[in-house]
Amino acid sequence: MRHHLILRVITKLIVPPILLFALYVQFHGDYSPGGGFQAGVIFAAALILFGIVFGLRKVKRVLPPWLVIRLAAFGVLLYGGTGVVSLFVGKAFLDYSALAAYPKDGQHYGIIAVELGVGIAVATVMVAIYYAFASRPPRINDEDW
């Protein structure tokens, strides 16, 4: 995409706000529409946009494939781990009331931790799937579109 000047400039302008918006959606999900699933998808969309316009090689320098797979597993483990922590404190699996002195605070911490796990897992899963598709040698030339 070396010749698409407008696309390149607009992408450069728009990727940071998308990433910031994803973080807002992630951590403001308790108060407004949003949460881990949406934030993960938006975060991945920003990275995929960057990859489409600037090339797979550059986006792989930002987020190398080996890290993507490990982060996806880490996200799932963070979710499960939160449940296990509440098990150790003596409550049921995924009962966040155990995480702090007051049940309401515990619920808040638990929801944030779990949503973060979901966000990391979803974002990296989407990026991993994109890497898998984009790394294959294409059958259609750029000119044929």
């Binding site: 308790d30 309401k104 638990g110 949503e115 897992a121």
Partner: peptide, 30 residues
């Protein structure tokens, strides 16, 4: 929970098991 967004509260807390399963499904698909 003291969380204003009921959807988030159900998603992450009341139905935490469900969402955990869904996350694992997404991971498995990847």
């Amino acid at each position: 929970t003291g969380v204003p967004n009921v959807v988030t509260a159900i998603l992450a807390s009341y139905r935490g098991y469900d969402t955990f399963g869904e996350t694992v499904v997404v991971f498995t698909a990847a």
